[in-house]
Design a protein around this nucleic acid. Structure first.
Lengths: 148, 148
DNA sequence: GTTCCTGCAAAGAGTTTGCAGTTCT
DNA sequence: AGAACTGCAAACTCTTTGCAGGAAC
């Protein structure tokens, strides 16, 4: 019993704004929702084409831009440790950090209450109305440390 | 009495590594050291050409890459709120946060002990050897808030 | 004098856009 | 029916590279 993409949080969010759920977008949303990694546009295009050969690069970029604009995905660049493409992930409620290994390229996520603390402190001390934050750390992972 | 660029921290750091201080690099280093803003490559090129018309784009990119490699400048992208160019700033000892106003594009820096706390926590809890961190916050500044 | 660095020009990655036709609601 | 969306192809922005000559140490 496969989950219908039309019932996902993303899709209903979009439906409410009069945004059409096309065949191509169904494929893309499904991939993004089930992705374990941080995809970039070319990953997404490749995966999408496994389902539908005709999906175009432009559609992928336009869909990502649309999702970003509606606050459903977040753009990362992971410190450009792996080329200069942008990576995308579902926007979650809790703020988290991306830790990128400079040697092997592995990216792990880390949750901490300090992110919220930081945002609160900025809000209080600077008067800026904080919308979102992006925290990326360049490091060397334990596995690579052992090999050094 | 103008400060000699050869005595700057950056220049002596480079001299120690056998890196040549060319006419072009003197101009670029001086601009970067005195910059109040976060420059991007095209800013830097434009400013450099006011001093020396013949400086080439490629030299600017190569110099920035060299400085980054030697840990003298840091690359930022400021959440791509203002196009997709990379911004650069002198690498300071203390970690700081960049807060970017989504309306007017203004970028302010904010220092807090929480950055160090965060890095320490990541080190302890994940076993990653933290090298550097980049924290960027999208927000609306007080001035723009008033106008809303 | 040798090695490193430069300008030039061309290529490369990643992304965006205009347009004519198609699909969604 | 009408607006929104798509594929295609071309354009565009930012950045990198090969090469032959020039400058720093």
């Amino acid at each position: 019993m496969k989950k219908d993409i039309r019932q996902s949080a993303m899709a209903s969010e979009l439906a409410g704004k009069g945004i059409r759920l096309t065949r191509q977008r169904k494929v893309l949303l499904e991939i993004i929702e089930n992705a374990s990694d941080h995809l970039h546009a070319s990953d997404l295009l490749r995966l999408a084409r496994e389902h539908d050969q005709s999906i175009d690069r432009a559609t992928v970029y336009r869909t990502l831009a649309m999702l970003k604009e509606h606050g459903l995905v977040e753009e990362l660049d992971l410190l450009h440790l792996d080329g200069s493409e942008h990576h995308y992930e579902l926007k979650g409620s809790r703020g988290h950090i991306h830790i990128c290994c400079k040697k092997c390229g592995r990216v792990v996520e880390y949750d901490t209450e300090l992110v919220t603390r930081l945002e609160d402190e900025v809000r209080e001390r600077t008067g800026f109305d904080v919308d979102s934050s992006r925290i990326e750390i360049a490091a060397v992972c334990p596995v690579c440390l052992d090999q050094a």
